[in-house]
Design a protein around this nucleic acid. Structure first.
Lengths: 336, 336
DNA sequence: TTGTATGCGTTATCAT
DNA sequence: ATGATAACGCATACAA
């Protein structure tokens, strides 16, 4: 029923081959012919059949975004950056979540990727996640965001630096008993998390401060988690005077825990996060902001580039984007 | 290079037609044959070619989600609900934003939808938006979320009720000078917004209270917008004692404005929002919560249903999901 | 229940 | 610069 390339060809008095070339902007087409074909196609309201085009060309014109979450600030913001670029490039964006909104696992994404996308963008999956390996094993052009993997291009921030910056800020304010809220309990496989911890360690060492294991807690990168983590820290015999939370959302929860205990963030206990979350300004949270949407854009652009020149050896492995310390009211000089 | 249906057919000693039927679970296939084919396909690691299948069948197996924003709480949460259902149904989800992350306009979505999806889910576009009309005019099975349109199924909350509930709550607390923060300046074309305002009016009328035009402001459904709006209200000669903000995010901004003016939300001025935003609990904001992810799920399920039975006359037009008043510290009895 | 054969709408190769 | 035509890989009507 819909108009096909054949209809256009007949109406324009040329072959389908010429129509195909003309409409795709390929060379070796008379300028006049091309214009005529364009007009005819437009008049006929012709729309190419993606399925047919894909079948014949082998290219799908679409890119999958694999993410553990959709409704969380970091992920949705990255996603918006990615979408922006892909949309501009005329690429279809296939969204694929690895876990349900409730956090449950579900069908692995890899099988659902095969034969239907030209490339994949993976957001902040844990490097140890088997799902990640499966996706990478697909052998598709891939771009990582918020995690690195040997041999795969990625867009990240310098998490070591971020952790160090955050910690150093607290140190500069005179704090010595500095607590830390990480994501997962034990040696997590999360690149970002590990690196931020390294930065924390480095800063502490340089300052000649000791890391008290009792001042370490974890909050799964969620608000409630951060609240619990902070509560745990507060119930120590000797609570910290400052806390480095590895994400703004955990910091939010931590601030809430402080208030529940009658403490004022900043005044009683300093707290700093990482992210630059929309809400951090509102909550007056000091944070090490990262250009999240840009991470998405950069990764998408890198992938598009690779798709266009599958050969060009010089693949920039990992692109680092700068972070920025934003000092607000949640961190204040230590008063003894 | 990849395995095709032909390879499977040969390996299983049957025709491609039988393989096609067997693998798709169609009837009229011997149970044994089907099993054998399944095993062979599995052994060969066969994956169907979507392009070929689509071209031959005419179905794309994918659904587009058209949304004005991706990185905002309401939209990303709806999206996660939608994705969850579509993923479960084995449908591809094509994400298509109508504006850039910066809010700028871009290529209209309608042309990008043609011939590549079986159905469309539209999230909270303004009823007057030309983009919406274009999408609807595509004639594709469509499901709306957060907006209604004559003749198109939708999943929404009862916004009139929500507005009324919120306002009534303030009234019940003894407030009389009640301000309202809407989204857009003049008679906005936004279904939800208009309805919430109607609810506001109704509640005020029933209580015999007058609506002071000077106590109406707008904040574009954003935090900064809400802050400005509240600031405008606070600089009135006679500020309100309570404010109904049409979204939690605007309420957040409003709370910030209050604090900037040395006022405490709840104690000095009561404020209530609509949404049930993740952060509302943290900020102790009273709100009329809506089941956002559910809206996405319901809409997706409705669309799937329609795709499966294009005929079955009884299309439930608009599905209303219940809201829930959550009272927190931002609203308190009026003290004169 | 199974096989045969045609069509789906392009792309791309090879001529011209 | 343009045309003819063979893939591309599957679905489906029709036969058997």
């Amino acid at each position: 029923m819909p108009i096909t390339i054949k209809d256009v060809a007949e109406a324009a008095g040329v072959s389908t081959a010429t129509v195909s070339r003309a409409l795709r902007g390929l060379p070796n087409v008379d300028a006049g012919t091309r214009e005529r074909i364009r007009k005819v196609a437009d008049d006929l309201d012709y729309v190419i059949s993606p399925s047919a085009s894909r079948l014949a060309s082998g290219r799908t014109g679409s890119i999958a975004v694999v993410t553990p979450y959709i409704a969380r600030w970091y992920f949705s913001t990255v996603l918006s950056g990615v979408e922006s670029v892909l949309q501009g490039a005329g690429m279809d964006l296939l969204l694929m979540s690895v876990s349900t909104p409730e956090g449950h696992h579900r069908m692995p994404p890899a099988p659902r990727l095969r034969r239907r996308v030209d490339g994949v963008i993976v957001i902040a999956l844990s490097p140890g996640d088997p799902q990640l390996k499966e996706v990478l094993d697909l052998g598709l052009p891939t771009s990582l965001i918020g995690l690195t993997h040997e041999g795969t291009p990625s867009a990240t921030i310098d998490d070591v630096e971020a952790g160090q910056t955050a910690t150093q800020h607290l140190i500069n304010l005179g704090h010595e008993r500095i607590g830390v809220i990480t994501g997962a309990p034990v040696g997590s496989p999360f690149t970002a998390e590990n690196d931020r911890y390294k930065g924390f360690q480095t800063a502490m060492e340089h300052a000649g401060l000791e890391i008290d294991p009792m001042l370490e807690s974890y909050g799964y990168f969620t608000i409630p988690g951060g609240e619990q983590a902070m509560t745990a820290l507060l119930t120590q015999r000797k609570p910290p005077t400052a806390v480095f939370a590895m994400s703004d959302e955990m910091a939010f929860g931590a601030m809430r825990a402080m208030r529940s205990h009658g403490l004022t963030p900043g005044t009683d206990i300093s707290i700093i996060g990482v992210d630059g979350h929309d809400m951090s300004e509102l909550l007056d949270l000091t944070t090490v902001a990262q250009p999240v949407a840009d991470l998405g854009r950069i990764a998408a652009e890198a992938l598009l580039l690779e798709l266009r020149s599958p050969d060009s050896g010089a693949h920039p492995e990992d692109i680092h984007l700068p972070t920025r310390l934003i000092v607000r009211g949640s961190t204040k000089p230590h008063t003894r």
